[in-house]
Amino acid sequence: MAAAYAGEIPLSERKSGYALMSRDTQKMQDDRTANPGTLWVLEGETLWSQKAGSAAKSCAGCHGNSGSSMTGVAARYPAYNTTLRRPINLEQRINICRTERQHATAFAYESKEVLALSAFVGSQSLGRKIAPPADKRLTPFRNTGRDLFDLRQGQLNLSCAQCHNDNWSRRLSGAIIPQAHPTGYPLYRLEWQSLGSLQRRLRNCLIGMRAEPFEYGAPEYVALELYLMSRARGMRIETPAVRP
């Protein structure tokens, strides 16, 4: 794994968005019965064992009933896909299993189903350290992600780094700017009143900058995800997290 890029937050000063939120919101995340994300995890557990598609196979049919075979998986995604010759994120991996193994139609981005399954798979890594794979083929994509993170864009001419490296913990109007660590996704955002993916979060920030958002699933988002995961290496997975 590469050393920290110049201008990044030193490893010892990194903080999850969790550390910057109110005690009440932290409690909501910590208490499984109060955390609204639990509903999606349970729904994901149901889908996991349901047969689907013309192959009439369930996820459990290939990966076992408990989902424990998924432990650590969310901590190392996005990963390189040899067929596509580019990195794919967890939602895309789930959809490749859907279409190629179950012979079913892919779930739409942000659909209840893909959020439920990625929450279920992600929660199998709860508490695990983020460990991006040491795969050299990922390097150019991760560099693209870092370039996008540093790019000033949109009508407001801001970069992700200007808010999240240079001004984290300050107040952007009512919101405390976090360091942008992808530790909790998919997560329940009080403002959305729903679970949402990391790409939904990135889309929100781009719209805030008055920049053109990318299409869901676009290589640019996956590159950003890859870079954010490497920037957060060693931090612990919180899926499903809660954020304001």
Partner: peptide, 8 residues
Amino acid sequence: LTRVGAAW
């Protein structure tokens, strides 16, 4: 400016 959203 770069990648300004269509509306702006």
